[in-house]
Simulated scan of single mutants.
Amino acid sequence: MAQQVPVAPQLERRPAASESSRERTASDGQSSDAAKQAMEGRAKLRIAVLHRLHRGLTEVEGKMSAFLANPGRQGVVTLPVVLSVSTVTFEWWKSANAVPEDRAYLAQVLGEPGTADDATLMGTLRAEIGQAFAEFPRTPQGVEARKLYDAVLQKYEAARIQPIIAGHDSGPVVEECARLGLSCEMDFTRSLLLSPWMLATSQSPEEGNATQVMVAGLTLPQLGALVGHLRQLNPLLSNPQLRALLLRASTDKRLALRKVMGLQEVEQVQELARQLLRLQAVQHLTV
Rank of each mutant, 00 (worst) to 15 (best):
W93G: 10
V60S: 01
E271N: 07
M122T: 03
G142Q: 14
S32D: 09
P6R: 14
Q131S: 04
G41E: 07
R160H: 12
N209G: 11
Q154V: 05
S65T: 10
F90G: 10
S32M: 11
Q37L: 13
P137W: 05
H284F: 08
T89I: 07
Q232D: 13
A166D: 07
L272R: 07
E157G: 04
L153Y: 03
M198S: 02
A16T: 07
E112W: 08
G181W: 03
A119Q: 10
R190N: 06
W197L: 14
E207R: 10
G111R: 01
V287G: 14
L193V: 01
S21L: 15
F90C: 13
S32E: 12
G228P: 04
R190E: 14
S95K: 14
Q131Y: 05
D169T: 00
S195E: 01
E175Q: 14
R22N: 06
L11A: 15
G56F: 06
R243Q: 12
A151L: 15
L83D: 00
L263G: 08
A145S: 14
A151F: 15
R138K: 15
Q74A: 15
L121P: 04
A127R: 09
A66Q: 10
A166V: 00
M39T: 09
A132W: 02
P100C: 12
L182V: 14
Q275N: 08
K44G: 09
V82W: 00
R179E: 13
E157R: 14
A107K: 05
A107R: 15
L218I: 10
M122H: 04
V49D: 06
A26R: 10
R231S: 03
P137Q: 13
R190D: 04
H51E: 13
A26P: 04
Q4M: 14
D117Y: 07
R179P: 02
R146T: 11
P71C: 03
A17D: 08
A38Y: 08
V76H: 01
D187W: 05
K44N: 12
L83N: 00
H51D: 13
V227W: 01
L255W: 03
A26K: 07
T219E: 06
A17H: 10
A216K: 04
T120D: 05
G41M: 11
S95L: 15
A98W: 10
N97F: 06
